[in-house]
C-alpha cells in the first residue's frame, strides 16, 4: 500500500523523508516506477512550496527551482539560451511535467538538460541547505534520498557562447545517441575557460575535462580544435544500449564535437 503525503513547506517535506519514502517531483520517474511495480517505497512525499517553481536572477547567476518544468524554461525570456535544450526533452506533454530537479536523476541515456547545466557551472541546492557542485552530485546521485530545492547556473555574458547539439535517431523527438553542451567564452579569438559536457556517453552526464584542456587558448578553427577531437575519442567509455553501441558512440563523438565547435550544421 502506498500513502501520499503533501507538504506546503519544502523543509517539512525534507524532514518527512525516510528509507521507506521517495520524493515526487514532476512524476515522470516515480510514477513510471509505480506503473511497472518497481517501487521500493511505501510513502510518496511531495511539496507544493512555491519556491520550487521560481526562477530568479542573482547577479551573474540564475536560480531555477527544482519543480520548474521544461515548458516553463521555454516560456521564460531570461532562459532563452536554454530553450533549444528544453525543446528537445520529450514531446509537449512530457515538457509540461518533466522538471529540472527530476532531470538530474534521469538514467542513461536520458537527462539532456543536466548536460547543459553542467557546462554552465551548475550547483545543486538541497532542501537541507547544503550546496553541491552538479558534477559531484551526479556522480553520487544513486543513493540520494533528499530533496533538490533548486539548481543555480552561470548566465553566459554572450548567449551565443553557449552551444548545444543533440543527436537522436528520430525527429523531432528522440532519445539521445549523445548530447553535447559547450560554453565557449573567448578573448581575442582564443577560448578562455571553455567547458564541454556530454550526455549518454557515461552512466551520468559528464564534463569532458581532457577536451577542455586542449581547447584552452585554442582558436575555433579546424587546426585549433584538432587536439580536442583526438581527446574526446579516448575520454569516454559509454554504455551499450538499444540506440547505439559503446564503439559507435566513441567513433562518432569527434564528428559531432567538430560540428558543434565549428558550427557545422546547426540544430539536432
Amino acid at each position: 500500500m502506498i500513502t501520499v503525503e503533501t507538504y506546503a513547506d519544502i523543509n517539512q517535506a525534507s524532514a518527512a523523508l525516510g528509507a521507506d519514502s521517495i520524493y515526487l517531483g514532476g512524476g515522470t520517474l516515480v510514477m513510471r516506477a509505480l506503473n511497472y511495480g518497481e517501487q521500493n517505497f511505501s510513502r510518496i512525499v511531495r511539496s507544493t512550496d512555491p519556491s520550487l517553481t521560481q526562477i530568479t536572477m542573482q547577479g551573474d547567476r540564475i536560480q531555477i527551482g527544482a519543480a520548474v518544468t521544461m515548458a516553463s524554461i521555454l516560456a521564460h525570456p531570461d532562459l532563452a539560451f536554454l530553450a533549444p535544450v528544453a525543446r528537445q526533452v520529450g514531446g509537449p506533454a512530457v515538457r509540461n511535467m518533466a522538471s529540472v530537479g527530476g532531470n538530474l536523476f534521469a538514467e542513461h541515456p536520458y537527462g539532456d538538460l543536466a548536460v547543459a547545466l553542467l557546462v554552465l557551472d551548475g550547483r545543486v541546492h538541497l532542501a537541507d541547505g547544503q550546496e553541491q557542485d552538479l558534477e559531484v552530485f551526479l556522480a553520487q546521485r544513486k543513493g540520494f534520498n533528499g530533496i533538490v530545492a533548486s539548481v543555480s547556473i552561470a548566465r553566459p555574458n554572450r548567449p551565443e557562447d553557449f552551444r548545444w547539439l543533440k543527436i537522436s535517431r528520430t525527429k523531432p523527438k528522440g532519445v539521445s545517441v549523445m548530447s553535447i553542451a559547450a560554453w565557449l567564452p573567448a578573448m581575442a579569438g582564443r577560448l578562455q575557460n571553455p567547458r564541454i559536457a556530454l550526455g549518454a556517453m557515461a552512466d551520468t552526464p559528464m564534463r569532458a575535462k581532457a577536451v577542455e584542456q586542449t581547447l584552452e587558448g585554442a582558436t575555433m578553427d579546424t587546426a585549433g580544435i584538432q587536439n580536442a577531437l583526438t581527446a574526446i575519442a579516448s575520454q569516454f567509455n559509454p554504455p551499450d544500449d538499444a540506440l547505439a553501441s559503446s564503439w559507435y558512440r566513441q567513433q562518432v563523438a569527434p564528428i559531432h564535437l567538430r560540428r558543434l565547435l565549428l558550427n557545422e550544421g546547426a540544430g539536432s
Binding site: 510514477m31 506533454a93 511535467m97
Partner: peptide, 22 residues
C-alpha cells in the same frame, strides 16, 4: 513510461500524460 502518449489529457488546457500524473 511516457513514450507513447496515448494517455494524454489536458490539465488546465495543457497536455499531460495521465499515466504519469499522480
Amino acid at each position: 513510461q511516457g513514450t507513447c502518449g496515448t494517455c494524454t489529457v489536458l490539465i488546465d488546457g495543457e497536455p499531460h500524460l495521465s499515466c504519469l500524473t499522480l
